[in-house]
């Protein structure tokens, strides 16, 4: 069949983010976690798994840059059974695999749902990248951008698609702020300036509430996803 010029574009279940699986059931919510190298994406994913695994059916897709390091960290920490963690290889371009050509990640997500599903939530962790790396809407229903105080307190001011448009911005490692001379209040104010009403969470996984506020945000997304089922 050939496409006519006046055929309207109609998304269907053979690709992308249709909220239903081919058999008509609602698929898992997919949340992407992106951000620069070393900002604490994998540690946040591990903490989220521990916080949510008793309430929800979870799986994780990692996008390692050149090893299986992130997937192996999660396996070693035993945050989920091994069959619920899949690593995708990204050919030296982590942003391509989550934005421009999402086919390998979609396949990983769908295979997880097929093999260990039904699932409530799949966390897709990007390989560490730069401030412009965001998830395609064809892959992730919502995205969290993770930066950290030690990467420089001017990052929220610099903005970029990750900081500006992510559904949640996490400023991680707040416990280090005093040691690296980062001004948390300024980071929060700059983030507010860039993001308007979009939420920002300052997080330290080593103290205080830990991943609690981010986990609460994820629960809200899950509740909303189910309400529209």
């Amino acid at each position: 069949m050939h496409l006519d010029h006046d055929t309207p574009f109609q998304p269907h279940h053979t690709h992308s983010a249709d909220p239903h699986r081919p058999d008509g059931t609602r698929r898992a919510l997919r949340i992407g976690l992106g951000g620069p190298v070393g900002s604490g994406k994998t540690a946040t994913v591990a903490a989220l798994c521990r916080a949510l695994r008793d309430s929800y059916a979870l799986a994780v897709v990692t996008n390692d840059i050149y090893t299986r390091e992130d997937a192996e960290f999660l396996l070693r920490e035993a945050v989920l059974p091994p069959e619920r963690i899949t690593a995708v290889e990204t050919g030296a371009c982590p942003h391509t695999a989550i934005r421009d050509d999402i086919s390998a990640n979609l396949e990983a997500v769908e295979d997880l749902e097929e093999s260990v599903g039904p699932l409530d939530l799949v966390l897709v962790e990007s390989g560490g990248d730069n401030l412009t790396a965001t998830f395609s809407k064809g892959l992730a229903d919502a995205q969290i951008f993770v930066i950290d105080v030690a990467g420089g307190d001017d990052i929220p001011r610099k903005g970029g698609p990750g900081v500006t448009t992510a559904d949640l911005l996490v400023v991680n490692k707040t416990d280090l702020a005093v040691h690296v001379g980062s001004d948390l209040a300024r980071m929060a104010a700059d983030a507010k300036e860039q993001r308007g009403e979009l939420p920002v969470i300052l997080q330290s996984l080593r103290s205080g509430e830990g991943v609690g506020p981010v986990a609460a945000w994820v629960r809200e997304q899950l509740t909303a996803w189910r309400a529209t089922a």
């Binding site: 496409l3 690709h15 979609l106 396949e107």
Partner: peptide
């Protein structure tokens, strides 16, 4: 086969066709 599966997804979106559906 992995690349074939990934190409299938993109091809079915770009040029929907019963022959592609049948092979998939």
């Amino acid at each position: 086969r992995r690349l074939g599966r990934q190409l299938m997804r993109a091809a079915r979106a770009a040029w929907p066709d019963p022959a592609l559906d049948a092979l998939a």
